[in-house]
Simulated assay, not measured.
Amino acid sequence: MEGSSPLVAASSDGDRSSSEGELTVANGAAVRDGEKREDETPMEAAGAVGFSISRLDTLSALRLNRTRPAADTELRYLHLLWQPSELLQAGRSSPGKITSNRVRRLGRARRNMGPIGKDLYAVKRLREAANSNDIDTVRRLLEEDTDPCAADDKGRTALHFSSCNGNESIVQLLLSYGADPNQRDSLGNTPLHLAACTNHVPVITTLLRGGARVDALDRAGRTPLHLARSKLNILQEGDSRSIETLRGEVTQIIQMLREYLNIMGQSEEREKLEHISNQLQNTRTREQVDEVTDLLASFTSLSIQMQNMGDR
């Protein structure tokens, strides 16, 4: 047996166990390599040992603990799948880099354990109630801490829907619970834009009081001043409104312009507007209201020109 290799000797000896044969291979390889190749690098030595181990049977590999860490990891993973709380704790305490797979698993565990589904239903119900002018449901959901800024897949919030519908009461209620008057949808429209497109002057006034940006442009490039001018044009062309209705709509436009000028800090323009407002209060006939409307239209056009010069 002196001429035989250590590997053959170990495999042919029936009295020795497989573990002993592994030690013989390892020791034999180490002795032989140490005698013949003193300059062998650590990587080469590792390759030689790995080749010898690959010739062993499965039981030998298990005894060398080559597969135990992987097996333990798989069993531990299967165990944690049934206990998401331990998975979250493991994700916080385990050292090392957090892989994308672990992040996804943690996210799934959190979604399964948290009231996310309930929250999604509540914010969807809030938008639907605002769109259908159901102020009681809107108030109840807001009192239950439903997020008023939650948007749908198109970026629209409950404030967008109520502003578009011209429901001033719901707009005011949403603003009082922290709705953002400058939040934009996927097309870039704020609630102010939607109110401008639908000519809801009272909602414009309420949004301006709630902090809406006065320089925000809608899709047509219009500011609140442009809205006021367009509304005045409609009033001047229409003959079907009664004097009370006409006076009320002109008063709304004056109120909107008053809020606008207060925000802009234009004191001189505000004084002129107050003079026009006083004239409106003293009107008694349709012709007098039309005169005030013409005066207000001229004032608004001049304000738009001043704004354009300021933007330049």
Results as ranks from 00 to 15, higher is better:
residue 206 T to K: 14
residue 144 E to M: 10
residue 246 L to F: 01
residue 195 A to M: 07
residue 132 S to M: 08
residue 136 D to M: 10
residue 158 A to K: 03
residue 148 P to G: 05
residue 204 I to W: 02
residue 175 L to Q: 04
residue 244 E to I: 14
residue 246 L to E: 06
residue 258 R to H: 09
residue 176 S to P: 03
residue 132 S to I: 07
residue 167 N to Y: 00
residue 238 G to W: 05
residue 153 D to Q: 15
residue 216 A to P: 00
residue 190 T to A: 13
residue 237 E to Q: 09
residue 182 N to C: 06
residue 191 P to L: 03
residue 200 H to A: 01
residue 169 S to H: 11
residue 264 M to Y: 00
residue 263 I to A: 01
residue 246 L to M: 12
residue 265 G to D: 02
residue 266 Q to H: 13
residue 163 S to T: 02
residue 198 T to K: 13
residue 200 H to E: 02
residue 239 D to E: 12
residue 142 L to M: 05
residue 153 D to W: 14
residue 151 A to Q: 12
residue 135 I to K: 13
residue 194 L to I: 03
residue 143 E to A: 11
residue 185 D to K: 05
residue 226 H to I: 01
residue 208 L to M: 07
residue 261 L to E: 06
residue 252 Q to W: 08
residue 218 D to L: 00
residue 262 N to V: 05
residue 202 P to R: 05
residue 156 R to P: 08
residue 256 M to D: 06
residue 131 N to T: 04
residue 149 C to G: 13
residue 249 E to G: 06
residue 185 D to Y: 05
residue 168 E to C: 09
residue 199 N to F: 12
residue 221 G to M: 02
residue 213 R to Q: 03
residue 256 M to F: 06
residue 265 G to K: 00
residue 131 N to G: 10
residue 147 D to L: 10
residue 263 I to C: 01
residue 267 S to H: 14
residue 197 C to K: 11
residue 136 D to S: 13
residue 199 N to I: 07
residue 228 A to H: 07
residue 206 T to V: 13
residue 222 R to T: 03
residue 146 T to G: 05
residue 220 A to F: 08
residue 243 I to M: 09
residue 172 Q to L: 12
residue 174 L to N: 09
residue 176 S to E: 11
residue 244 E to V: 14
residue 217 L to W: 01
residue 170 I to Q: 05
residue 141 L to I: 00
residue 260 Y to F: 10
residue 133 N to H: 14
residue 145 D to Q: 12
residue 189 N to C: 07
residue 190 T to K: 09
residue 241 R to G: 08
residue 147 D to S: 13
residue 215 D to C: 00
residue 220 A to K: 12
residue 268 E to Y: 12
residue 150 A to N: 06
residue 229 R to F: 13
residue 147 D to C: 11
residue 193 H to C: 15
residue 245 T to S: 14
residue 240 S to Q: 11
residue 190 T to Q: 10
residue 254 I to L: 12
residue 224 P to E: 02
residue 208 L to S: 02
residue 165 N to V: 04
residue 216 A to T: 01
residue 200 H to D: 00
residue 219 R to M: 11
residue 219 R to C: 12
residue 249 E to D: 15
residue 209 R to Q: 15
residue 168 E to T: 13
residue 251 T to C: 06
residue 137 T to I: 04
residue 189 N to W: 00
residue 139 R to N: 09
residue 158 A to M: 01
residue 226 H to G: 04
residue 163 S to Y: 01
residue 204 I to P: 06
residue 163 S to W: 00
residue 213 R to Y: 01
residue 184 R to D: 00
residue 199 N to C: 10
residue 195 A to E: 07
residue 238 G to F: 03
residue 180 D to E: 08
residue 155 G to Y: 05
residue 194 L to R: 15
residue 266 Q to S: 12
residue 220 A to N: 10
residue 144 E to A: 13
residue 231 K to E: 15
residue 233 N to V: 06
residue 203 V to M: 03
residue 217 L to K: 11
residue 143 E to C: 01
residue 222 R to V: 01
residue 244 E to N: 14
residue 212 A to W: 00
residue 184 R to L: 04
residue 248 G to D: 12
